[in-house]
Simulated scan of single mutants.
Amino acid sequence: MTASPLLLLRLLGLMLTFGLLGAVPAQAETDAQYRLASGDVIRISVFGEKELSIDEIRLTDAGTFSYPFIGEVRANGRTARELEQLLTAQLKGDYLVDPRVTVSILKYREFFISGEVKSPGGYPYQPGLTLRRAVALAGGLTERASTNRISIIRDKDPSRRPQKATLDTELEPGDTITIEQGFF
């Protein structure tokens, strides 16, 4: 039984409406470029080796985790793919003949927002997050907030120098945002 073209068009429309198309590749692209650091939560799966598969690991303050047979593993600054390659190389030979390792990012590290927002603090990062959405997560701006005096410190920036930001600026995990008071 084949589906009619009209039924296929309706199905495609529903998928587009609910965002079922396009979301996975964007997430996969983000994960491919994403560099792991302290606070990220990952899953490690080794095909056919239940005792080497770990459902949830939070990286330590140093960006490391402990792994069976290997010991302390440094994940900080690596992508999930690079970590897969490292674990595969470490397990191959001594422990397994042909290990198939998969690393997935379960939770990204938090971003932090302070200053003139109603609920300052740390919030979970989500791919595609803009400063406007981050402000909404923090309960919105206070009456005294300035939309022109916003600074951001990127976690990946070793100088830790504040940069000017707008409400349309895209955030990254670990960012620290400060929203200053406006002068009236």
Rank of each mutant, 00 (worst) to 15 (best):
G13C: 01
M15W: 01
P158G: 13
T130A: 05
S114N: 11
R160S: 12
L131T: 09
A134K: 04
R78S: 03
F65M: 06
L6Y: 01
E143Q: 13
L16G: 01
T17A: 00
L87I: 12
K156A: 15
P158F: 08
M15Y: 00
P158H: 10
P158T: 11
P68E: 03
G115H: 10
A28W: 08
S119H: 13
G71Q: 02
V101C: 03
A62R: 15
P173K: 03
T64S: 11
Q27N: 02
E116F: 09
V135P: 00
D40I: 05
E172M: 09
S146E: 10
L12S: 02
S45Y: 00
I179Q: 06
A165Y: 14
A134I: 08
P173Q: 05
I42C: 08
M1I: 09
D61Y: 02
G121P: 03
R74Q: 14
K92W: 00
S146H: 10
N148L: 10
L52H: 09
P127T: 08
D55A: 14
S151W: 01
R100S: 05
P124T: 05
G182W: 06
E82N: 02
G77F: 09
T166R: 06
G140L: 07
P124E: 02
L59P: 12
G63V: 15
T142S: 13
G174C: 06
A134T: 12
Y123S: 11
A62V: 14
V135S: 01
G122Q: 08
S146F: 08
L86P: 00
P68N: 07
R100A: 08
A136D: 07
L91R: 12
T169M: 12
R154M: 07
E116Q: 15
F111A: 13
F65K: 04
N148G: 06
E172S: 13
G128K: 12
T178V: 01
S45A: 11
R132W: 11
F65G: 02
I54V: 15
L16A: 01
A3G: 05
Q27S: 09
L36G: 11
E84T: 05
L91S: 09
S104R: 15
N148E: 09
G140H: 13
R149H: 05
Y67D: 01
L86R: 03
